[in-house]
Simulated assay, not measured.
Amino acid sequence: MAEQRRATTTRPSAARERIVAAADRLFYDEGIHAVGVQRIVTEAGVTRVTFYRHFPSKDDLVDAYLERRKQFDRDQVGGIVAAYAGRPREALTELATVLTRDDFAQVQRGCPFINASAEFTGTHPARLQAYDVRRWVTERLEELLREVGHRDPRAAAEQLMMIRTGAVVSGALDRNSHLTDDFLSAWAHTIDSGR
């Protein structure tokens, strides 16, 4: 039965994609608890039967929404690491530059994983998804820092992740007109001071 449920919830279809796309927009813009199933059904242009065929519960949809966001992050980071294979310092710079160039504009309400985590406690899928993607990105940073010969790649990777998180939150809350320069400076200092 669990196998059948998993197959049902992951079957690719246009309706499923519309549901997840509507959830992505609404959950990010308004919050997960604030958006009910009926609103998503209406926005996606599907019936409740179709919704529940793909997502037996709202938590299943939350998981799919964050999985989609997580896959975007993994594709983005993984693509940069692959594009700069053998050039780890350049990869680290590009990871920071992409965040300032592309992502700051897309996360004006803050990090979707932090926002989702704030709405749930314990081992809810939202918190597990946030932990998973943040750990994965931190591990990629640590690998790159190890390649550049950083003397403490584990600590520096954690610090880079904190700087990244702080920059996203600052972008959403502080109206810091120097955010990009401040972020890039802190990022580069953390890398270069340990080499």
Score class of each variant (00 low, 15 high):
83 A>W: 06
83 A>R: 11
83 A>Y: 06
83 A>E: 15
84 Y>G: 00
84 Y>L: 01
84 Y>D: 03
84 Y>S: 02
84 Y>K: 02
84 Y>T: 02
84 Y>R: 00
85 A>F: 03
85 A>V: 13
85 A>D: 14
85 A>N: 09
85 A>I: 09
85 A>Q: 13
85 A>P: 06
86 G>P: 04
86 G>Y: 01
86 G>M: 05
86 G>H: 04
87 R>W: 02
87 R>C: 03
87 R>F: 01
87 R>T: 07
87 R>I: 02
88 P>R: 02
88 P>L: 01
88 P>N: 06
88 P>Q: 06
88 P>D: 04
88 P>W: 00
88 P>C: 05
89 R>V: 12
89 R>M: 11
89 R>T: 07
89 R>P: 02
89 R>H: 14
90 E>L: 07
90 E>H: 05
90 E>A: 08
90 E>M: 03
91 A>T: 01
91 A>E: 00
91 A>C: 08
91 A>G: 06
91 A>H: 00
91 A>N: 01
92 L>N: 04
92 L>A: 04
93 T>V: 12
93 T>S: 12
94 E>T: 00
94 E>L: 02
94 E>I: 01
94 E>R: 06
94 E>A: 05
94 E>Y: 04
95 L>W: 04
95 L>S: 06
95 L>Q: 06
95 L>V: 13
95 L>I: 15
95 L>A: 08
96 A>Q: 04
96 A>R: 02
96 A>I: 05
97 T>C: 00
97 T>D: 06
97 T>M: 03
97 T>N: 07
97 T>A: 09
97 T>S: 08
97 T>W: 00
98 V>P: 02
98 V>Y: 05
98 V>I: 11
99 L>H: 09
99 L>I: 15
100 T>Q: 13
100 T>V: 15
101 R>N: 11
101 R>P: 00
101 R>H: 12
101 R>I: 00
101 R>A: 14
101 R>L: 10
101 R>K: 13
102 D>M: 04
102 D>Y: 05
102 D>N: 08
103 D>T: 14
103 D>P: 01
103 D>L: 13
103 D>G: 08
103 D>Y: 10
104 F>E: 07
104 F>L: 11
105 A>C: 02
105 A>T: 04
105 A>N: 03
105 A>K: 02
105 A>G: 03
105 A>Y: 00
106 Q>T: 10
106 Q>K: 13
107 V>Q: 14
107 V>A: 12
107 V>S: 10
108 Q>T: 15
108 Q>G: 15
108 Q>E: 15
109 R>Y: 14
109 R>K: 15
109 R>V: 09
109 R>E: 15
109 R>I: 09
111 C>W: 06
111 C>H: 07
112 P>R: 05
112 P>W: 05
112 P>S: 12
113 F>V: 05
114 I>S: 07
114 I>Y: 12
114 I>W: 12
114 I>C: 04
114 I>R: 10
114 I>P: 00
115 N>C: 12
115 N>Q: 14
115 N>G: 14
115 N>H: 11
115 N>P: 10
115 N>M: 13
